[in-house]
């Protein structure tokens, strides 16, 4: 494992690898999105209670899952940068934050759009919504800290500590918020109560989740390439690359 880390921890190799993989992941993402959207929007039957509007889960649920997943990727990459001083890991962590924030925002926005016809209100102070909102604050705090520190290396390491503190706190925040909302009122409407989701609705959901994952990987690679070029702009290989593209 350390051999791989050694090889692709070097910015130049990581850049080349990302260049090769990006189109592959891009096409896989496109295929998965087409399959997931056709399955979710056309093939899956409308819900017997919610009608057509349940179909927003094909965007909502994957984004909510991704919002947590991206945070974990960001914190793990940060830890790798902190412990083994891998420069590429720093670039990955930094690139994750805005994407994670957008996934979180998307989960909140789609939830809100779904909530209006279903619950009759744009927003409820429900446990999941509230902890998702706090997760958004954590992402925005991370990004604010990144932009406040000018030194790239220091910003990455400070961000890594903050992300790790966040990892310890996410379960605490989640459970305390859950406990808080059950104390205030019982769950009036819960999303997936007794009837579990039917297989014809579940398969598109899983495909969409894979599509989101693959989309994340694609965009992550594009962003990491940008980060690496910026970070290594004074090295000879980046200069050569620029000369080649100009010629």
């Amino acid at each position: 494992m350390f051999d791989i880390l050694d090889k692709y921890g070097a910015p130049k190799n990581a850049y080349t690898l990302a260049c090769t993989l990006t189109p592959w992941f891009g096409w896989i993402t496109a295929a998965l999105f087409v399959a997931g959207l056709v399955g979710g929007l056309i093939l899956a039957p409308p819900d017997y209670e919610q009608g057509e509007s349940f179909r927003i889960i094909y965007v909502h649920v994957p984004s909510a899952w991704m919002s947590l997943f991206v945070y974990m990727v960001m914190a793990s990459a940060g830890a790798m940068g902190l412990v083994w001083k891998v420069k590429v890991a720093d670039a990955i962590a930094r690139s994750c934050a805005p994407m994670g924030a957008w996934f979180t925002f998307l989960a909140l926005a789609t939830g809100s759009l779904w909530g209006k016809p279903m619950w009759g209100t744009w927003w409820v102070w429900d446990a999941r919504l509230t902890s998702e909102l706090i997760l958004l604050f954590l992402y925005l705090g991370y990004m604010a800290l990144q932009s406040a520190i000018d030194d790239r290396r220091m910003a990455a390491r400070a961000g890594a500590v903050l992300a790790l503190v966040g990892v310890v706190n996410i379960p605490i925040i989640h459970y305390s918020v859950e406990w808080w909302s059950t104390l205030h009122q019982g769950p009036t409407v819960s999303k997936f109560d007794a009837p579990s989701i039917h297989i014809s609705m579940l398969i598109p959901l899983l495909i969409m989740t894979l599509a989101f994952m693959s989309y994340f990987a694609t965009i992550l690679m594009v962003r990491v390439r940008g980060e690496i070029l910026d970070q290594e702009r004074n090295t000879s290989w980046v200069r050569k690359l620029c000369e080649k593209s100009e010629a």
Binding site: A158, G166, I173, V177
Partner: peptide
């Protein structure tokens, strides 16, 4: 510690820690 010596550190500090105070 993370914001020590930063310009506008006070405001940033508040943004970073208040979400962690919520529990």
């Amino acid at each position: 510690a993370l914001t020590v010596g930063l310009r506008g550190g006070g405001m940033l500090l508040t943004l970073l820690i208040v979400p962690l105070y919520m529990p």
